[in-house]
Amino acid sequence: MPERLHVRKTYKLYVGGAFPRSESGRTYLVDGDNAALASRKDARDAVVAARKAQPKWAAATAYNRGQVVYRIAEMVEARRAEFKSLGVPGKEVDAAVDRLVWYAGWSDKIAQVIGNANPVAGPYFNLTAPEPTGVVGVVAPASLLGLVSVVAPAIVTGNTVVVLTAAPQVAITLAEVLATSDVPGGVVNVLTGHAAETAPWLASHDDVNGLDLTGIEDAELATELERAAAGTLKRVRRPGVTDFTADPGLAPMTAFLETKTVWHPKGF
């Protein structure tokens, strides 16, 4: 009996909840697999999908978003073997699951921790609360833990993201997790390929509100992207974090949160 022929996976993009090929028709080889090579037009389409999904995702209750992120953790756990087969160490899969669980719990606490009731000197109710920045372009680190560590904080706070990654197998496998985790289509969009090619389009895009450069290793490219992001005064999270096993703190979440303060008089 000949050995059964293994069925390979085709690694496509993840945009608006679907898995399309690159509009450019381009693919590139990654460890023997063909992966879609995203183009600037894919970036454009992904921003449209992210924008479309954003208001509803932001309007979902924090409880709901927390449950969805927790569901992602459950699904990653269930795919532990697959991630390991892609070369992700078991400990890292565990850490990624734990990180997701950690962020799931933040959904309905972050506003309490960083919001404030402000004792203004007058008869006014004055409350400060965070709100999502909007659509965030994310240049993700290659590792699963790194990827989860940039995507989870951005979405648990109500943003939607366009993720650029150079590690299609891990990232698209995570996309498959997302597609089966009650994450509404368009909340996370994953483009595989070269950040140097697509990131500038996100950095200069007028309908992108934030840019996470954590996954950029080339300092010159990071500077160029930060400069381009200044065009519409995007919120930029600069590269810096390399050890994703450390306690992330609040910064990954607050980087893409706006602060809104509402005043109202108090009187009969």
Partner: peptide
């Protein structure tokens, strides 16, 4: 918007954060 005044306007206080969204 970063500051929303309801039934009042242009009120400022040192305890109240001030600043914007977007551009």
């Amino acid at each position: 918007a970063g500051v929303v005044w309801a039934n009042t306007f242009n009120k400022f206080d040192p305890t109240s954060p001030f600043g914007g969204y977007k551009e």
